[in-house]
Design a protein around this nucleic acid. Structure first.
Length: 367
DNA sequence: AACTGAGCCAACCGCCGAGAC
DNA sequence: AGTCTCGGCGGTTGGCTCAGT
């Protein structure tokens, strides 16, 4: 038996609010304060659902709200917080005075997500698309090329894969000439559950405390300095909340030290086919002994609930850090070779199709 | 001028947890 | 312990605006 509706929806007005209705809410709140929203419509003389009144107040009428556009600083903060904690809009909004979760969510969905995509960054994982693709190749049970081809990342509607990521460009909304995010996120793969990796965000006070730690510093540094981040010694203390099944419960992950996003994106096999000739050299260089091997690693995922990699499991999945925290069990070349196989398979199919249907597929057809 | 599609944002929906009873 | 109510939350939808054709 479900919860009964808070009001008779057939008898309440819906849709946009009129100035008169707004005035009634404001008048009511100014004299009675906030509380017991279910009684507000009756007491304020409104033919609205109490919940609707609360939302109207929370998202629009509150006097402390800003109604102007987001500043570049606010955008940077949203991106970095989203990178850290995922789509927990209310927590993000608490760090932005005068902004509501709805504001932040809408701004993310309409502006920031596209900005990141244009930079060749998957807004879901905050990683370059090429790295996300290689992560799919790393998911256990997807060993062979055919399986990988059958698993389309686009099945996840939240996954904003682009068929051909654009080369890195200068973001329009940022004050700096440097891209605000060029560091791949190695701490998490955010597929609807893994944002719980960073687990100490449950209270705003904790959040505030942690947000002042170096966790975000690399991002902000990079907006004003070169890509050689000073975060090489930074460690993120991970402690899983009891409600989730991240493993292990305690882990330390070093942040990327000298990673160059531009270099990485330029190595994107989808963007630059010559990547295959360079990748081994590239990763040998990046993974040289002087570099922390984990700087390019991502957590490998194992699903204990039967959902595939595209399943939005909402906290029920299990992240297995066993292979990435401390011991590297899968090399970058393995990961990228699976991507290469994937690309090769596509190119091979393309060649066959071109040979078979030369009139249909002209030269400009491209992936 | 009319149409169309994309972008944007306000509002809604439904689930959930907390707390009162 | 069970039920009910409220408010919070993230995801989704509806409708307005505007640029392009």
């Amino acid at each position: 038996m479900g919860r009964p509706p808070c009001c008779d929806k057939s008898n309440v007005k819906r849709g946009l609010w009129t100035p008169e209705e707004d005035a009634k809410i404001l008048a009511y709140v100014s004299t009675n304060g906030i509380g017991n929203w279910t009684m507000v419509p009756k007491k304020a003389g409104l033919n609205r659902c109490g919940k609707s009144c609360r939302l109207r107040w929370t998202n629009y009428l509150r006097p402390d709200l800003k109604h102007d556009g987001f500043t570049p600083q606010e955008e940077e903060l949203i991106i970095s917080l989203h990178q850290a904690i995922g789509s927990r809009w209310s927590l993000i909004a608490k760090q932005l005075p005068g902004r509501t979760d709805n504001d932040v969510k809408n701004h993310w969905n309409t502006k920031l997500r596209k900005k990141l995509s244009k930079l060749g960054i998957d807004p879901l994982t905050h990683k370059p698309f090429s790295l996300v693709l290689s992560d799919y190749g790393n998911i256990s049970g997807l060993q062979n090329t055919e399986t990988q081809i059958n698993v389309s990342p686009n099945k996840n509607k939240n996954c904003t894969f682009m068929p051909k990521p654009e080369p890195p460009s200068i973001p329009t909304g940022f004050t700096n000439t440097e891209a605000p995010i060029r560091r791949p996120v190695v701490e998490q793969v955010q597929t609807g559950f893994s944002n719980e990796i960073i687990a100490s965000w449950d209270s705003p006070s904790q959040f505030q405390l942690i947000s002042q730690e170096p966790i975000f510093q690399p991002l902000f540094n990079e907006t004003t300095s070169s890509c050689s981040s000073t975060a090489s010694s930074n460690l993120i203390q991970l402690s899983s909340p009891p409600a989730y099944s991240c493993q292990p419960s305690q882990a330390q992950i070093p942040l990327s030290s000298s990673f160059n996003w531009g270099e990485f994106i330029l190595s994107d096999p989808l963007t630059y086919p010559s990547f295959q000739q360079q990748q081994d050299i590239h990763f040998q260089r990046v993974l040289s002994p002087s570099e922390p091997p984990t700087s390019l690693q991502t957590p490998s995922l194992s699903f204990t609930n039967g959902n595939g990699p595209n399943g939005h499991v909402g906290g029920l999945g299990t992240l297995d850090f066993g292979s990435t925290l401390g011991v590297q069990t899968k090399t970058r070349s393995e990961a990228t070779s699976s991507v290469s196989s994937f690309v090769e398979a596509i190119l091979e199919q393309d060649s066959e199709m071109r040979a078979e249907f030369p009139d249909i597929l002209d030269e400009s057809f491209d992936y």
